[in-house]
């Protein structure tokens, strides 16, 4: 038997919204520690990895490891029926062919029950090697979203270059070119919210090119976290990570574009 409950069901809906345009379906792997999900886009350019810790749930029970094969568009249809402040419970039998989703309003005056048919998904899991990244940037997620959206109107590839002082997003297209730089926030600045700051950890300067179409897709997760962390190395995928307080994180890996 697998059973879990989230006070903020809305968070789960946002999570599904953050993967469903990239990956059509996937296996929720549930074990005693939490839930994980991995999936690639159809072109195998990007990989999304979701990790939810059991500590983030108000209730969590997993007697035996279960795999829930889920079509995200279908799940999203059911989650649409959930109220913004509803509590969400998910239940599945060990060998069942469906999972139940229960939405309950704050005052328990409304309860909704949905059964989602599960799928058998034959999906290979990819191993992500432990990597020492050359540059790690933490910035407001809304700022990253705006940059990706605005630059994609000018070109389809962004060059991200990082130095100790700043991270620069450059774009070029038929109409011209441009760049936007974000300076590392002053370390002595004790005022203000930490999530508003731009923090750069740098081992050595790095520059890589990425498809804006995918980055824009990743920013669907902006609603999940105030900050986003970008990790870059030379000739390796970019990691775009959104951390949710104690629930876990969603990570997107994007293969670089190589300048020929």
């Amino acid at each position: 038997m697998f059973e879990c409950a989230l006070i903020q069901g809305e968070l789960f809906r946002k999570l599904i919204a953050s993967v469903q345009d990239l990956v059509q379906d996937g296996n929720f792997m549930c074990d005693a520690n939490g839930i994980s999900l991995q999936g690639m886009d159809s072109s195998h350019v990007a990989l999304v990895a979701l990790a939810l810790k059991k500590e983030g749930f108000v209730e969590y029970r997993c007697d035996r490891d279960v795999t829930l094969g889920i079509n995200f568009a279908n799940l999203a249809k059911m989650l649409k029926c959930m109220g913004a402040k509803d509590r969400l419970s998910i239940r599945a039998q060990d060998e069942g062919d469906s999972a139940s989703f229960v939405f309950e309003s704050e005052d328990s005056s409304r309860v909704s029950n949905f059964e989602l048919k599960l799928m058998q998904i034959d999906q290979e899991q990819l191993g992500v090697p432990e990597t020492q990244y050359k540059a790690v940037i933490r910035m407001p997620s809304s700022e990253f979203q705006r940059i990706c959206k605005d630059l994609s109107a000018i070109g389809d590839t962004v060059s991200i270059s990082v130095t100790k002082e700043a991270v620069k997003f450059s774009v070029g297209g038929d109409i011209g070119s441009g760049d936007m730089s974000l300076r590392q926030s002053e370390s002595g600045d004790v005022d203000g919210d930490d999530s508003e700051k731009v923090m750069i950890e740098l081992e050595e300067p790095v520059q890589q090119n990425f498809a804006l179409r995918y980055l824009n897709n990743f920013t669907k997760a902006t609603a999940l976290s105030k900050t986003v962390t970008l990790s870059l190395g030379t000739d390796m995928p970019l990691v775009t990570e959104y951390k949710m307080d104690n629930l876990g994180s969603i990570r997107y890996y994007l293969a670089p574009k190589i300048d020929e």
């Binding site: 350019v45 990989l47 290979e124 990819l126 090119n209 995928p237 293969a255 190589i258």
Partner: peptide
Amino acid sequence: PFQQQTITNFFFKA
């Protein structure tokens, strides 16, 4: 001028 790499070039099959 850019060539898109695939993620499977970097990550191994588990």
